[in-house]
Amino acid sequence: MNNLTKNIIRFFVFVVLQTLIFNQLEIGYGFHLMIHPLFIMLLPFEMGVISLMGLAFLMGIIIDIFSNTYGLHASSLVMMAYFRPIVFKFYGPREGYDPLKEPNVFDMGNRWFTFVFGVLLLIHHLWFFLIEIFQFNQLFFILQKTIFSAVPSFLICLLLQSFLIKKSKTK
């Protein structure tokens, strides 16, 4: 299976998982599981920022249509896609990334993944709740919601990778 078909299938899997399963789970206490940022994270290293943002926008709009948020997911996913190369560069190895590898937890190791995906997920969630609530006297509530949603989302994204991704044999 080549890279393109794999990512197209992944796109639909993530949209279906997010809209039909994770959007319907209502745990309360401000928990809000969002796993679709993982798709943007898992796209290949050599992909340009502009195509990343285009894909993020498309995916965001589809999820928005399903959850009546009208552009909120699109906005925060584009935000995350914009920051992805910056964070990658900041925490990248000196000789650059190996284009044969994929930015997932098995290829890149736990420490790298936790840091990079953690930061990107925080950016995504923070922007999402900032725009959604949009009251600056509720800053504490925004931060609380961000943390409460980002931590479980991160854990579920870790779990999901073991279901969705084949471990590469080079290791």
Partner: peptide, 26 residues
């Protein structure tokens, strides 16, 4: 990046108060 942000936020603000079409809603 700015263009995509502006598009999505404009859709968000518009639909929040008055949805112009049914196509971006459930």
């Amino acid at each position: 990046f700015a263009l995509l942000q502006v598009i999505s936020l404009v859709i968000y603000v518009q639909f929040l108060s008055f949805p112009r079409s049914q196509y971006l809603t459930t």
